[in-house]
Nucleic acid binder design. Structure first.
Lengths: 113, 113
DNA sequence: CCAATAGTTAGCTAGTTGGAAAACAATATT
DNA sequence: AATATTGTTTTCCAACTAGCTAACTATTGG
């Protein structure tokens, strides 16, 4: 499970790939259409698609000479869950420290420990 | 350009760095303590901290010879928002296609009539 | 003051990444 | 059959990444 996150976050660390995801969230599209917007060579662009596909973010099928790409639900949700979980943890901690923090802030404003 | 997302997702694409974030969600810690768990050289580990800090995921202050690292709330939330937004879009689309999808699914399952 | 602790800086390396060009299929289209 | 469209494969390259060791700078603690 955790290794998914590796490829997943890696895939989303590139703006071209995020743009593709944003486009695909609107619905499936052929490679050529996806490529049209981006000012890079097609083979380069295809590598990005490959990265997304390897990360499980996207799937594609070829019919005739057209390869149609569509988004894949699972992984997005998984990463969202991870992020949410981290946030929950530290928010819980901040809640537990809330009273103390407030007290410290009142008593020793601007002091180092 | 709000492309913190670049550095952000990049930072989270490494398991060591995700582990650090998971640990820090529990509360701040000095570099040495964070490092202790990971079987890599300290300079290497420090680079990871630097990456997290550059991505804005983390901040640190040095007091005496100890550098204490703590998590930073904003960016995590931002990425979560991005992911959620993508998911919302394609879920909305799937909803619009819902009736059709259901019909197709029914036809595939109930081939016995 | 001396030693241990906690980071930091510098320099090296192997491997990965994002980009390009060129040439090659495989399908439409006319 | 000839051409245009749509990918695919191959090969190359520069820049970046994650890792290492070694040597160095503070800052405690005794």
């Amino acid at each position: 499970m955790t290794n998914h996150l590796n490829a997943f976050f890696g895939a989303l660390s590139d703006p071209t790939r995020r743009a593709v995801i944003e486009r695909l969230a609107q619905g499936p599209a052929p490679v050529s259409e996806l490529h049209a917007v981006h000012d890079i060579a097609l083979p380069t662009f295809l590598k990005h698609i490959k990265v997304l596909e390897t990360a499980g973010l996207v799937r594609s099928e070829k019919s005739g000479r057209v390869r149609t790409v569509h988004i894949e639900a699972g992984p997005l949700a998984e990463a969202e869950t991870w992020l949410k979980s981290q946030r929950r943890h530290w928010e819980a901690r901040l809640d537990r420290l809330g009273v103390l923090a407030e007290r410290m802030s009142r008593n020793e404003k601007g002091q180092d420990q």
